[in-house]
């Protein structure tokens, strides 16, 4: 135990540098995936066939390709097309796009769960499609969407470790580097696990809070 504490004080500063990048990647890709997911979802529920089919196509392509391959594509293939990104940028964009598909499906479920009568009532007082979305559908959908959204956040926090495959020195990669140079696998990976857990706890509380709230009438 004493050895562990000694290792901890030695490795924590380096690991916290990894934590910083993990948080950066998670928040960056969370914002991007939310915005893109909202766009796909609104396109998906459009009554214009071509718009909704385009969105369905995009979602399926994104869903059908492993996140790791999307990251490789953005980081290693884009430079050939003249777009060079730093590893951090590529990680945020890659994870953001990859997760936008799941966000979109969640948002769409929320939008479609809203009673048709709500939309008709909005139309009957002269609201157009966009105002109906903005004033009537989305505010009600948010409540339904928040608990699964929290779960997606937790998944994204953990999947940010995939950024290590394109050299982003986030928490998992920092841990691996320290472990391979010191051979103190037990101490290092225990610390890494604890740090991920600590970051997850606020998100888990967030989900529980909104699940309770959504359960109320």
């Amino acid at each position: 135990m004493q050895a562990f504490l000694r290792d901890a004080t030695e490795f924590l500063p380096i690991l916290l540098e990894g934590v910083r990048l993990t948080i950066l990647v998670t928040i960056g890709s969370l914002i991007l995936s939310t915005l893109l997911g909202l766009v796909w979802a609104i396109m998906r529920v459009s009554s214009i066939k071509i718009v909704s089919r385009t969105s369905a196509g995009i979602i399926n392509v994104i869903r059908g390709i492993p996140i790791i391959v999307q990251l490789f594509y953005i980081y290693f293939v884009m430079p050939d097309l003249g777009v060079s990104l730093t590893a951090l940028q590529a990680a945020i964009i890659g994870l953001g796009i990859a997760y936008s598909a799941y966000q979109a499906e969640n948002f769409r479920a929320g939008i479609e769960a809203i009673d048709k009568g709500q939309i008709e009532a909005a139309q009957s007082i002269g609201m157009g499609w966009w105002m109906t979305m903005r004033r009537v559908v989305l505010p009600q959908a948010v409540r339904l969407v928040l608990p699964p959204y929290g779960n997606t956040m937790i998944m994204m926090l953990k999947d940010s470790s995939q950024a290590s495959t394109i050299t982003v020195a986030e928490l998992a990669l920092q841990g691996k580097l320290i472990a391979s140079s010191t051979f103190k696998n037990t101490s290092v990976f225990t610390l890494v696990a604890i740090l991920y857990l600590v970051m997850s706890i606020p998100l888990i509380l967030f989900v529980r809070h909104f699940e309770k709230k959504a359960g109320r009438p």
């Binding site: 009532a121 009957s124 002269g126």
Partner: peptide, 20 residues
Amino acid sequence: IVSIRTQVSMVFQRFNLFPH
């Protein structure tokens, strides 16, 4: 249609008030 809907209102069987 917007101008028509603002001239002819509708009351629904299931009220359809905005609950939020």
